[in-house]
Simulated assay, not measured.
Amino acid sequence: MATIELKDVRKTYGTNIEAIKGVSLDIQDGEMIVLVGPSGCGKSTLLRMVAGLESITGGDVTIAGRRVNNLEPSERDIAMVFQNYALYPHMTVRQNLAYGLKNRNTPKDEIDRRITEAARALEIEQFLERKPRQLSGGQRQRVAMGRAIVRKPAAFLFDEPLSNLDAKLRVQMRVEIRRLQRSLETTSIYVTHDQMEAMTLADRLVVLNAGRIEQVGTPIELYEKPATTFVATFIGSPSMNLIKPTGGPNTNWPSDTATVGIRPEDLVIADTSSAGGFRVKVQVMAVELVGAESYVHGMTEDGGTIVFRVPGRSVIAIGETLELTALPDRFHLFDADGRRLSP
């Protein structure tokens, strides 16, 4: 186990393409950090710089107190799990698990012990003599994780490892990854573009945008107190509604309020007893039934869009006009630069 520190880390391609723009981050021993953001935000580049697969243009990366900027990947005491499994097709599962250990001249009895432990933890004992082509996608991903586990590295680095799996398997595997990481207490950095995956896996989330950190915090901190409109709309599904406060429905908002954010679950259909200083009329455009609840997409009178949540058995017709309200303590206020304001 180890701490990982990034100090003003930068990555520039050519003379002027800056992919990583001064990222600083302290990762604690045994912590699961998830890097999340849209495609092209720099999350995979940052992970590869920690791994040694990308050179560092500026700043420092330290692992367990050791500066690793100029060390080869094999010298950094890390193990990576990729989305494409990277298994040797001509080897059995057992041979795949043993390969890295043999290259490090690990004694045979120690190799056997580690393989047995990892196979038991991942429930792949019955597959040890099979070739990768004889396994399902989920089983191959377990083997890829096992190959990382047997190394007993200082840190695990996960590069979108579940993106090739179907939705059901992704849910199962992210639960498995979180369980294993907690039991092994190994410092981990996990990259994903899937914000649901990020929310369920992370001790802390790091939201990246265009090579910079937008916000760092626990999943609930980022959900309940997004620092910017970018974080507000990226974390949460469906996204937070962003509304321009024209007409002044709440005169207690700070004068520099440029945008009001409201989560879909915080909007309710108004009736004569509804309290609160915010009301908006919407015409229903679509209704998404997702089981126990539905998400209703509507259009406001000024042509904006809004999404709100209702119980799954609610009967709402497309084309219907409804009035929505929300309590003031559920508002998120942002200034003209998209920065959070104190309520």
Rank of each mutant, 00 (worst) to 15 (best):
G52A: 05
N241I: 02
V268I: 13
T57C: 06
T218C: 05
P107L: 02
T259I: 14
G137W: 02
M173E: 12
K102C: 04
A167G: 12
G312T: 09
S237Y: 12
L242C: 01
V315R: 13
E125Y: 06
R212G: 08
V296Y: 09
I33T: 09
I262G: 01
M80T: 14
M49Q: 13
T192G: 11
N252V: 01
G52W: 04
G298V: 05
V191N: 12
S74E: 12
H332E: 00
I33V: 15
L267Y: 06
V150L: 11
N96M: 11
E224S: 09
K168N: 14
V284P: 00
L97I: 08
L97A: 02
L25C: 08
M145A: 09
R170C: 14
S183A: 12
A79P: 13
V207E: 03
E265R: 14
V290W: 05
K281E: 15
P219K: 02
E31Y: 04
L333E: 00
G37W: 01
P343S: 01
G261P: 04
L327A: 06
G59K: 11
Q141I: 13
M145C: 05
A19I: 14
M199P: 13
K43F: 02
V191C: 10
R114S: 08
T116E: 15
E110Q: 13
G236M: 05
M91C: 03
T186W: 08
Q181L: 09
P226D: 07
V216H: 00
A270M: 09
L71I: 06
D112S: 10
F158Y: 15
H297Q: 08
F334D: 01
G22F: 12
T325C: 14
G312M: 03
Q215D: 04
R76V: 13
T233L: 02
G276I: 09
P264I: 01
E54Y: 10
G236K: 03
F278A: 01
E31L: 11
L201S: 03
G236T: 02
R204P: 01
V216C: 03
G247K: 05
G261W: 00
Q283E: 15
R151M: 14
T62W: 06
T321S: 14
I124N: 10
M32P: 00
V36G: 04
A86G: 10
V61T: 08
Q215W: 03
V231T: 14
A79N: 10
L324S: 10
S24F: 11
